[in-house]
């Protein structure tokens, strides 16, 4: 269990946990791992996903409506860890469900579930004191977002506290597909490189093999989110795992 990108570029697969249901998310995650995803990001559904575009908003809304909770996502992570001991596993959440559970409880339960790391969308480094302390106590990797708008001083601070990998946002905006990888992305990765030896993964709008190849030229890994969630949305639940497996297998050609 570790966050490692053995093949280049690495693949990080984001899934909204509990969409269409928790059992299907488990099957999808296993298929993604078995077809080449190095890291699974399990997204905790939240009522107000303000950094997300329409695709992940809809998935989140469906999962919240089904009553999927942070504890369910932790259980899902535990099951995935047992089934795939070597896969990278990251919990991806907005802050409020974590605050509601309590930061200390959340971090110890995440570690107990076998997660490698955590990414909290609306947690910035300046506010992260207690979070970082709890992550350290529990041996978990805190993963932070770096944005094209972040000046060098912020990138330096982000790099200093990150572990596992740094999540470089490919462009300004919310999650969702785009035609091609923005020029912002390579410039950001170049600037980040000055401050860290950690792998740098690029996400937001990465949706096909061409994008993954483009990212592979300047970064360590590509993060695919909305494209997977959209494919799950349009697939019947029974076929979703197969569809995602094939899709992931086709990303690194």
């Amino acid at each position: 269990m570790a966050i490692e990108f053995s093949k280049k570029p690495g693949i990080v697969a984001y899934l909204t946990a509990g969409d269409p249901d928790l059992a299907t998310t488990r099957d999808i995650a296993l298929a993604a791992i078995d077809n080449g995803a190095d890291v699974i990001e399990l997204g905790v559904p939240f009522s107000d996903p303000l950094a997300d575009g329409p695709v992940i908003q809809r998935a989140s809304e469906r999962a919240v409506a089904r009553g999927v909770r942070l504890t369910d996502v932790l259980d899902l992570a535990k099951g995935l860890r047992a089934a795939r001991p070597a896969a990278g596993l990251v919990l991806f959440s907005y802050l409020n469900p974590v605050v509601r559970m309590g930061m200390k409880t959340f971090c110890s339960r995440a570690a107990e579930a076998g997660a490698d790391g955590v990414l909290l969308t609306d947690m910035i480094v300046e506010e992260a004191g207690e979070y970082l302390a709890e992550m350290k106590t529990n041996g978990l990797a805190p993963i932070f977002l770096a944005a094209p708008t972040s000046p060098d001083a912020r990138l330096k601070a982000i790099a200093a506290v990150s572990q596992g990998f740094v999540y470089a946002i490919s462009r300004v905006g919310i999650t969702g597909t785009q035609q091609k990888v923005a020029g912002d992305a390579s410039e950001l990765v170049t600037r980040l490189r000055q401050f860290t030896k950690l792998p740098i993964a690029v996400g937001f709008g990465i949706s096909n093999a061409e994008h993954v190849k483009a990212v592979g030229e300047f970064a360590d890994a590509a993060i695919i989110g909305s494209a997977l969630v959209a494919l799950i949305e349009k697939s019947p639940a029974k076929e979703a795992a197969t569809a995602i497996g094939q899709f992931i297998a086709g990303l690194r050609t």
């Binding site: 910035i124 506010e127 932070f144 912020r154």
Partner: peptide, 20 residues
């Protein structure tokens, strides 16, 4: 951190907004 009212307030936003 500036912008605290006792324990409350602060800044909890996606990193993209921080520079702004």
């Amino acid at each position: 951190v500036a912008g605290r009212f006792g324990a409350y307030g602060g800044r909890y936003v996606p990193e993209t907004l921080m520079a702004a």
